[in-house]
Design a protein around this nucleic acid. Structure first.
Lengths: 350, 350
DNA sequence: AGTTCATGGTCTTAAAATGTCCCGGGTTAA
DNA sequence: TTAACCCGGGACATTTTAAGACCATGAACT
């Protein structure tokens, strides 16, 4: 109950601060699996000595275990974090931010994790955890899930774990599109297969390059194997996609200079599923490609967007305006920025 | 949510201590109406200086007002205490104690107030407050309530206040028995009238001595006025009774030496409604008297027992074993002791 | 085998908490 | 009216605690 905290704040004015601090420490320890005092102090921007006081306390409460190799969260600590998570949201004021974004863009759910992906790799991991939690929250035993590529999605795949012994052996994971010329780990194909393995589901891969010439597209479309998997992709009930900053994506796709400047000229700020969007969420550029098409996306029941970092706020905002998202998973830095933009819009519309 | 507090106990054990301390201080200030720093420090067993640090904080939070005559609780402070009360129960571990006693003896409700009646007059006042709260919780507009005498009941009568504008003008308060040879303030008659006045209800008095000879009993029973009020008493839906230590009651009743030794020889430890009970809750001695009889008590819908102090634990325990209580209101000292006895019983039954 | 990073111990210093006493003023009871 | 009493608040020495800095030792990894 939110009330109780408000009441206690009167008698314990510094309650929030301490609670936040200890929660953050415990949380960080959990994310790090095992971590030393000095490293942890540096990553939390505390002096070693005060951190030590806190970890001693956490240890005496049985929330962490201290070994010669470092500190590790205990089962009790893990349980505590789980229980505290909703409260922590309100502690950091993230619940309000979530609701603001959710209601403004009519989403069914918004999840904001504390921190900034760009600054801390742990926040990125947390984003992945939150994303997989969100996916598991809507995943049914015989769903088809399409996923895109990207480092955030890769992190999410790593964090995906089924706690319940629910069987997903009739579910399918497929890539939403073909491969980018990027490292193996963050390709949609890899991510689809990782996710599938982690929840005990099946997967199909799409072995075609993402960027296609007209000729190549036509000939591949006739291939029956490819046709089959593309049909599966297009009938997905759930799509999980990263959100990219437009310019960076052109670079990662190694587009030629003229195309890049063309896309930029059209005011593109965001990219997802192979489409480029301007600030207003309008599609300004479409890449010829295999896999999900616009009409498939619009038909998809659950669209989960996942991205974080202040620098991606513009891109995320554009995707929200596009209006096809159902669930957004982002971080505090991006959410704050999006919140500011919402405020500005409201103000200018008065 | 109960959960949150449990979580806090793990993550903020030190803050919970100060929360307890500040709650106790604020609570004591409320009970004292107005009190000076030194007096308060003495009654809470703290040094003046540490108390001062706390009261300064309470003042800065606007929970108390400091005047030249002493400290007084503010409206905000009063509100805070009310809101925090259920949480405080769990903070002090009293909720578990309540539940333990409740379930062991099949009561519908057990209320344990912090402290020890014998040590602190404030705890006695608190016991009275809790008792009147419990009564108001079950009191219906046209109830008949029988009350016994005793200092605890007197305190309860003083603390009885109806917050709601509920009308009890059709309710009746009656004494459960006649007068003891004691001071006016703690006689059942006085208490019944005080309670009735405080909630705007009616009252009838029973003007007969509690201890009667056979002859006197017979002749009084024929009196129509007395017969009428006795009938009202016997049809009560609620009875609120104190619980006395057997030996002390024989003294207060000024019984002759032979009767006293007789009662003692029978192993009596508790007294209530004019009956003496042994440790097992069996009635071992009955006084000839007007008013409530055993069969009336058994028929009564709501029996509220109220008593506190470690020295009364044996007596309270005996009454619980008697098995007619529905609601017990006691203090921490007595409840702890009763809890210990329950543990011993459980252990010996294994 | 050497390096690195971990915990846990210790010493010093700064700061906060505490114990103690006192003062002027208002309240109360005689 | 007066005197005793208790009040809050100021002052200050002292104790306790928190914090910073460093080091010893040991496990793990290269």
């Amino acid at each position: 109950m939110r009330n109780l905290l408000e009441i206690q704040k009167q008698l314990l004015p510094d309650l929030m601060e301490t609670l936040k601090r200890r929660y953050t420490i415990l949380h960080q320890i959990m994310l790090s699996d095992i971590i030393g005092r000095r490293t942890l102090a540096a990553s939390l921007d505390m002096t070693e000595r005060v951190l030590r006081a806190e970890t001693d306390l956490l240890k005496s409460q049985g929330l962490i275990e201290i070994e010669s190799v470092g500190m590790r969260i205990s089962d009790a600590g893990r349980r505590l974090l789980d229980l505290l998570e909703p409260a922590a949201k309100s502690l950091f004021g993230l619940d309000e931010l979530e609701e603001k974004i959710r209601s403004t863009y009519g989403l069914s759910k918004v999840i904001v994790v504390p921190g900034d992906c760009e600054t801390s790799p742990f926040t990125k991991r947390e984003l992945g955890r939150a994303g997989s939690k969100a996916l598991l929250g809507v995943l049914r035993p015989d769903d088809i899930v399409a996923v895109t590529g990207g480092s955030t999605l890769a992190e999410m795949a790593d964090q995906l774990t089924t706690l319940l012994p629910l069987s997903y052996k009739n579910a399918w994971f497929v890539p939403a599109r073909g491969g980018l010329g990027e490292s193996m780990e963050i390709q949609a194909n890899t991510i689809a297969s990782t996710m599938a393995k982690r929840v005990g589901a099946n997967y199909r891969l799409l072995h075609v390059p993402d960027l296609l010439s007209e000729d190549a597209y036509q000939s591949l479309a006739l291939d029956s194997n490819i046709g089959e998997i593309v049909n599966i992709i297009r009938s997905s009930r759930i799509i999980v996609h990263g959100i990219g900053e437009a310019f960076e994506m052109t670079r990662r796709r190694k587009l030629d200079e003229s195309t890049v400047s063309e896309i930029q000229g059209e005011g593109a700020v965001a990219e997802s599923f192979g489409y480029y969007f301007n600030e207003d969420g309008k599609i300004v550029h479409t890449m010829l490609r295999m896999g999900m098409r616009l009409e498939d996306i619009m038909r998809t029941e659950v669209v989960i967007g996942i991205a974080g970092g202040k620098g991606k706020a513009t891109a995320i905002h554009a995707m929200l305006r596009f209006g096809q998202e159902n669930i957004l998973v982002t971080d505090e830095a991006a959410a704050q920025e999006i919140g500011r933009r919402i405020d500005m819009e409201v103000q200018s519309s008065l």
